[in-house]
Amino acid sequence: MANATTAGAALPADTNIPTVLHEPRGTASFHLKVFIGIAVALVIAPFVLYPVFLMKVLCFALFALAFNLLLGYGGLLSFGHAAYFGMASYLSAYSAKVWGFSPELAILTGTATAALLGLVFGAVAIRRQGIYFSMITLALAQMVFFFCLQAKFTGGEDGIQAVPRGRLFGFINLADDRVLYFVVAAVFLFGLALIYRIIHSPFGQVLKAIRDNEPRAVSLGYRANQYKLAVFVLSTTLAGLAGALKAIVFQLASLTDVHWSMSGEVVLMTLVGGMGTVFGPIVGAAVIVAMANYLATLGAWVTIVQGIIFVLCVLLFREGILGLVARWVKRPL
């Protein structure tokens, strides 16, 4: 929280998000090790843990990573990310089930929908800042929810059920959980690598400059709005990829995915894992999904425990789990 005491007016300038502008030397090779570690863990995991559960974690982790790209590196807090996740999930489910698309095409359809939606909504939303940006994204997402509730093709609250998993590229049978798992893991790794590349590209550096001080970035000749729109669309596209994958994994798409509480859940995952850390959202997603799955027997206590985690995170560990770890190993994560 180095920049926490700097005075500022709007959200992007005064966020307490730890900055990763100044990475100590050797960070890149350290991150490479983390990458390899994640890849190895992904290979071993399905033999230890239940693959369907892992796939759920991966889908949500990708979703949270996409969200964190926008919040942690664009400084934009979207309250409506469920819209892109959910719409992609619907389109992917619908195209696979009704139009008989192969899984890769269905996922592509869903992702493209989210990208398009992100482009339109982003163009509207990035014109406002701080909390107003958040409220516009929320309002637009509520409209998407209403549309999904009304539209015939979504199947109302029953959702689109029994979506075929199909054969990837025509010959890989995804009906087997293990096979599907490795496909999901591969997509996830691809998403993670892409986000890592974006953050560490010149584009990412400009984003961080805009996040930390927009007027200065503008005075340096950067068109802040174009950069913001670009990162918004990237974020919604990746959120869409996560949603589209999820529809294929669970063979269903439902209103839960577009409801505002899903937008809240992704904020929670990012917060728990550590905002502005590259790998934090993965940890956050794992913790939250594990809680929803393994504490399900606790019944009503699940929401209370969730509330307690929120309060604990804000009061005591504002930098999230990986933020703490990063401080401990003295390297950004």
Partner: peptide
């Protein structure tokens, strides 16, 4: 055994799969 599906189809189907598998 018992569990809460929180009215979410994906949570319900994950629990069901885990229970059966």
């Amino acid at each position: 055994v018992s569990a809460d599906h929180q009215n979410k189809p994906d949570t319900g189907s994950t629990i069901a799969r885990r229970w059966y598998d």
